[in-house]
Simulated scan of single mutants.
Amino acid sequence: MPTELEELVAFLHSPQPAVVQIALDNLVGYSQGQHQQIFAYDDYRAITDLKLLSKSKGRTLVNQSVTILINLCDDVRMRNLIVEDTEYVKFLVSQIINLSNANADLMTILLTNIAKNDKITRVFGFEMELSEDQHQVFKSTKAMDCLMDCFVKGSDRSLNRYADFDYLSYFFADISRFSLGRKYFITRQQYDDVVPISKLLVFTEKYDSKIRREGVASTIKNSLFDSKEHMELLTNEDINILPYILLPLAGPEELDEEDMFNLPDELQLLPEDKQRDPVEAILITHLESLLLLCTTREVREYLREKSVYPLVRELHKTMESNEEFQNHCDRVVQLLMRDEAPEGHDEIDMEESDDEDEDKIVEIL
């Protein structure tokens, strides 16, 4: 016999809209924690019901069904039932880029939560059907290009008054963990002749949005796992990635004149009130990016020329009470200040770190 809560879950596929609404009203609170397993009733029929409900016309109905799906992503089986439904994932993207959708940000969170599964890379093959109005905004019909445009152009709600698209930064961070995602972010795109990662760099100092800074920092880090691309990312003026890694790490401290003028131009003569990123986890992510850049001798020498060591040295002094932070600073310093091995031993193996933030599931109360 089904329990009372399981019967409530079964009401999600009732033919009576009023009954469905009552069920949703009561089930949102049970979509987190130990009660989540009630949604496994009847071979996970609720997941199918919730996906159908999220395609309905009612704003509240969509809001509640998507909220429940977001929370259920804590459960790997339920998460996989969402991401493995290719048509549903394409529907989510279509609704995120629907610039009149009042639930676009919620759907962005759901897209982010299901991006833990490598099936999410199917998004690179999605061609979107765009309206005439959308063609004015999106110059490409490829799903990833459209999502990038939403993130870059829509941060001030100028594209969709209901959405700021901040959570797409977490989606980019997750999808960049897969080789197909990393390749996208560091490859010049035909539709606008721009390397996607270069569009994200400016958001490393968007201090009114921790979400954007955090997601972008992780996307940068993940995009650096191919050491063969490092010099291009550093020296190509259209990308110029180093200043955007260093600026969040830089404080108001004065360096020696020689060190100061060896820094990238963007870091020279910073104002006296320059502040570092206030979030330690973001600072650590940028330090991890520097560690990845230290993989080859060529780049280590470039970083030395750009006074990266003096900047990290000053950063190290300000965070003496944080052991993890100190360890990351120490590793960067050791790689930059040590004697180089003989020729032919130029590359260092860097162990990919586990970033808990990238595995985080966003829950909605």
Score class of each variant (00 low, 15 high):
R188H: 07
K153H: 04
T219K: 11
I245Q: 07
D174W: 01
R177A: 06
F151W: 04
Y244Q: 08
Y170A: 09
V194Y: 02
V194C: 07
S198H: 07
V216Q: 06
S176N: 03
L159T: 04
Y244T: 03
A173W: 00
D156H: 11
F178Y: 04
A163M: 03
I175R: 06
I211C: 15
I175G: 00
F225V: 05
P243C: 13
I211F: 15
T204D: 00
A217L: 12
T219R: 09
L246Y: 12
D208Q: 15
F185E: 04
F185I: 11
R188G: 07
V152Q: 00
A143Y: 02
I241W: 07
K206W: 05
E205T: 12
L242T: 10
L180F: 05
S155L: 08
T219L: 09
V202K: 13
P243F: 11
R188V: 09
K228Q: 05
V152H: 02
R177S: 03
L233P: 02
K206M: 11
D226V: 06
I197R: 13
S179L: 05
L180I: 07
L200I: 00
F151Q: 04
K206H: 08
Y167W: 15
P196K: 14
T187P: 03
Y170F: 12
L234H: 12
E214Q: 15
N222Q: 04
A173D: 00
N236F: 11
L234T: 08
S179A: 10
K228F: 01
L159S: 09
R157L: 14
S227L: 06
D193M: 11
L224G: 04
R182N: 07
N240R: 12
F178Q: 02
K199F: 00
D145R: 14
F172Y: 12
N236G: 14
S158Y: 03
E232M: 10
F185M: 14
I245T: 03
K183N: 13
A163G: 00
S179T: 02
F172I: 12
M148G: 06
I197S: 08
Y162R: 11
Y167E: 10
K206L: 14
S223F: 05
I186P: 02
H230R: 10
T204N: 03
L246E: 04
G181L: 06
S158R: 13
R212D: 06
E205Q: 13
L234I: 15
L242M: 14
S179R: 05
S176Y: 05
D156G: 11
S155C: 08
K210R: 14
L200T: 01
D192T: 04
S169I: 10
I239E: 02
E229P: 00
F172T: 05
I197C: 10
G181K: 05
K206P: 02
L200N: 01
L159F: 08
V195M: 06
K183Y: 10
A217M: 12
G181M: 06
I211V: 15
M231Y: 13
V202Y: 04
R161W: 12
S169N: 09
S209Q: 13
S227E: 01
F225S: 06
K210Q: 14
Q189S: 11
F165L: 10
G181T: 02
I186E: 01
D238P: 01
N236Q: 12
E205F: 10
F225W: 04
K221N: 10
Y162W: 07
Q190A: 15
I239D: 02
M148H: 09
D156C: 12
I241G: 03
D238I: 06
S227M: 06
F165S: 09
S209W: 11
D238E: 07
